[in-house]
Design a protein around this nucleic acid. Sequence first.
DNA 1: CATGAATGAGCCTTCATTCAT
DNA 2: AATGAATGAAGGCTCATTCAT
Lengths: 187, 187, 187, 187
Amino acid sequence: MIRDRGDVRERIVSAAMKVFSRYGFFKAPVHLIAKEAGVSKGLVFWYFRSKQELVIEVAKRSLPLEIVDSCLESGLSGEKILECIGKGYLEKYRDPVQRNLLLHAMALETLYKEIAEEMNSLCEERIDKVAERVFGKPSIKGKVALRAFFGGLMCYTLRRPRDIDEEAFLKDLIDITVAGFRNGTAP
Amino acid sequence: MIRDRGDVRERIVSAAMKVFSRYGFFKAPVHLIAKEAGVSKGLVFWYFRSKQELVIEVAKRSLPLEIVDSCLESGLSGEKILECIGKGYLEKYRDPVQRNLLLHAMALETLYKEIAEEMNSLCEERIDKVAERVFGKPSIKGKVALRAFFGGLMCYTLRRPRDIDEEAFLKDLIDITVAGFRNGTAP
Amino acid sequence: MIRDRGDVRERIVSAAMKVFSRYGFFKAPVHLIAKEAGVSKGLVFWYFRSKQELVIEVAKRSLPLEIVDSCLESGLSGEKILECIGKGYLEKYRDPVQRNLLLHAMALETLYKEIAEEMNSLCEERIDKVAERVFGKPSIKGKVALRAFFGGLMCYTLRRPRDIDEEAFLKDLIDITVAGFRNGTAP
Amino acid sequence: MIRDRGDVRERIVSAAMKVFSRYGFFKAPVHLIAKEAGVSKGLVFWYFRSKQELVIEVAKRSLPLEIVDSCLESGLSGEKILECIGKGYLEKYRDPVQRNLLLHAMALETLYKEIAEEMNSLCEERIDKVAERVFGKPSIKGKVALRAFFGGLMCYTLRRPRDIDEEAFLKDLIDITVAGFRNGTAP
DNA sequence: CATGAATGAGCCTTCATTCAT
DNA sequence: AATGAATGAAGGCTCATTCAT
């Protein structure tokens, strides 16, 4: 069998995503992942020291950290960065596999410090950085607004409402975030 | 030990909450729950046909459905109902046990239709009802704003920011939700 | 099924002895022990936290510590105590199961400190105590003689010579031990 | 690295000795041996058809057969041959690796006929030959005395007593063996 | 109601062995 | 000769569930 280096590992990760997304991290047996990847069970443990290592790798990939980071790195600001993040987010989690994995991964935060750290970094540093980029300077209200923005995205992903399409939703959400920040009673 | 009828059942549920919150629903062995509740393992299966039944009961209780319902029933409207929900929500999930359980329960949505239905009811009907109560009449933008509100709460619960206290957060969040809805570019 | 308390545990230990003696501690699968004991595999782990725990219990029982102790406690001295130990030893290891287990258990000394401690206690304190009882007062030569005595027993057990019966062997061995001590070049 | 033919094979055997001595024959994974030898796992199976083959080779080497043989071949007799054997024995098993291997190898006797044969040859033919060389003519008592001698050596090796040095021990042991044989009640 | 011994399915993991390169 | 990816069998152990008492 001719396979690229790294190819197999990636195939295992992909298979794991499918299987984890369907059964959850803990009810998914490794042998199903191997089967889905078309390799032997033993080989999974050649590439990953343990199931937990695979779980954590998959969980990390299913968090939206990279989206936020790439938008931050692109140097955007104001509504543009919200748009960047929103689009990336909605696109990533349009895939039901990723959507489910996100839910499962968030629950892992309780159990594995690696995931907890990613969530920390996402929910505290990153979110505040974005707030500053959007509203110009750090402020409590900006942080709250950003949490509303992020939460709104998550909420939409959790249950895609039938009567609101992605584009319209994102436009409104950005609108609310920005206008809410600017025109509140306590500017 | 004098035990009321139903007392034991409740003790088991409480114990299950602690244990599930710590280990997750699937990594929590029934014997730990029994131990925590101070009863025998067998008794757990007298009150609950299976572990799954217990899991679902605990998961349902850890969702915020009751909070939303009681605020809806109280007849409040406008910002008042947001305040009602916000306070209830923040209070409930201030308890780390409940906070973790919420995360675990959300992931269950993928696996058990009972939980999926609760989430459906919460994220679609309830959220839209509240939107109507807050903004007077149904509108896409109102629904989006409400998702931002709910998402914001969830986001806050997930990581309580050190520099924003509950009361201030809620005030700002309501402010953003309402002002965002009213003063957006496309009313 | 009506079984005495403790009966089951003992049945498992007995089964383990048979199986361990035949396959060695590490090549003996737990399921064979369970089968031999007529119980389920799971039950073995109800009585023993791990296979290792069972291994150590069996290994301890197959060392001759108890024989030496009971002869020491009986207050015997001189040749009598050698006779007591010799008879006990030869009787115990006449059973091929015990004989094999002794070999396997001695090898465990390298791996488990529990066994190492038993061996220590046997080979140092006990052997020297016996030497004192036999020869009246502590002496290097007495210790050496006792080691020859013990070693001789072990050697006989390892390979029962066809042309030397137990009784004769023991008589000669005691004779050599005592006379060797008394009549050596350096008394 | 410049390697002779046969060098690699020997390196593997050496590595196996270290690893087997530490983990025991059955708990020692081949990959550790390969690592210790600085070769790939596959190569071990180029030089040895199976792990068992390697196990048996190492086990055979760690028995004291060669020592006895070389002393027999040297034509020594009387106390001299005991001295030869004793010195060789004590020297070989001064190395903790060899000492542990001896224990592990003795347990193998139960499982592999190759080892059983070696032990047979050692414990019956060889021991009796040596007895004859020491005491001039075959006799039951001589055989017993020789078993005491060998057993004493093994016993010393198993636990080196702190207060008896090798040389003194061997001198006393020979003394006891010889005097025990000559001066017993039943010559 | 209550207990806890007993069961058995299933899971993660290890490891000897093979084989294409 | 040498490598290390790949395999598959087997093992230890956990755990939900049952049931006699």
